[in-house]
Simulated scan of single mutants.
Amino acid sequence: MSHDHLIELATSVAVGAGELALARRRAGVTVAATKSSAEDIVTEADREVEALIRSRIAAARPDDGFLGEEGDEAESRTGLTWVVDPIDGTVNYFYDRPAWSVSVALVEGDPRAGGRAVVGAVFNPVGGELFRASRGGGAWLGERRLQVNADVPLELALVATGYAYQAETRIRQASIVEGVIGRVRDARRIGSAALELCDVAAGRTDVYYENELSPWDYAAGALIVEEAGGSFDIHPSDGMAFMVAGEPALAERLRALLVELGQ
């Protein structure tokens, strides 16, 4: 099957899932469980949306693997695995803040050990924005081809980041931000890793870093950044690996600063 068919499936599934999630948000949100902490919530909609994605992909590609944030997992018989975050930015979703998305990627190889996305789609249902990419085919927002911002010095960069759910980790992350913010134009945080990556690809921010992301957080967004001319790299650190995404030279300068600050 060509990449065209794969990206068509990824985008169709992401949009359908997003429409369901938006309908459930308008009807009212119920917290179903918590995960790593009391702040790390799972809604009933997360589970329902993941089940919809799983069923649609299984019907179209029954031999592919599946890895979903809410625990649905199936082994691949093709070497390809769908990596899905049904609602990326669940806390935003819970509070009815418009920065949440559905992320769908098809990854070649092991998603937890260096597998690379073949296609990816990130859909923001509230804004109606559909980001998509295929490897070698560019990154797109609607009919606009995306390109990361180039030739931005670190001191003039708009930097995006995110925080963990555990309080002690957030405290450590905040100390790093304190060191970064005086060395760049400014810092932003919207609370959805997938959308942060898409914003870098679209030139809405210059570079993005975050700690301890899972494959479903970044699989689609990383491909979108790369196909927009950026880099996406995960770096080892002292107990808390971090990723940096952006125009390659700028991303490297930010990485070096983070290491200097004790990241």
Rank of each mutant, 00 (worst) to 15 (best):
V15G: 03
V13D: 11
R204M: 06
I234G: 01
R204A: 11
L223Q: 08
D63R: 13
L258G: 10
A14D: 14
G262Y: 08
R112G: 00
F123E: 05
V31Y: 02
R132T: 14
G179E: 06
E44M: 04
E108T: 03
A193D: 05
E247Y: 14
A241M: 01
E50V: 13
Q263S: 15
G162Y: 08
I57K: 08
Y95R: 14
A33R: 14
I181A: 08
E247L: 02
R77S: 12
W140E: 08
D64K: 05
T161H: 14
R56Q: 14
A251E: 08
D110N: 08
G89H: 06
A164I: 01
V148P: 02
G230L: 06
A150R: 15
G191P: 03
S192V: 11
T169C: 00
A228Q: 07
L213D: 02
V259M: 10
L141S: 12
A251M: 05
A23E: 15
Y209C: 01
R172D: 04
E226D: 03
Y209H: 10
P62T: 12
A38N: 13
G230E: 08
A99N: 12
A222L: 04
A59M: 06
F94T: 09
E210W: 03
A117F: 01
E75C: 00
R77K: 13
V118Y: 01
T161S: 11
G109Y: 00
A219C: 12
G179R: 10
D151P: 00
E212A: 14
T81A: 04
V104H: 06
A219L: 09
I224C: 00
I87S: 02
N124Q: 12
A245Q: 09
G28N: 12
L20T: 15
G115Y: 00
E44I: 10
E247K: 04
D85N: 02
S175R: 15
V152L: 05
A32D: 13
G239F: 09
S36R: 15
T11I: 09
A249H: 08
I7D: 02
D72T: 13
V42R: 10
R172A: 15
T34R: 15
A14I: 15
G68I: 08
G65V: 09
E143P: 00
R255C: 05
T34H: 15
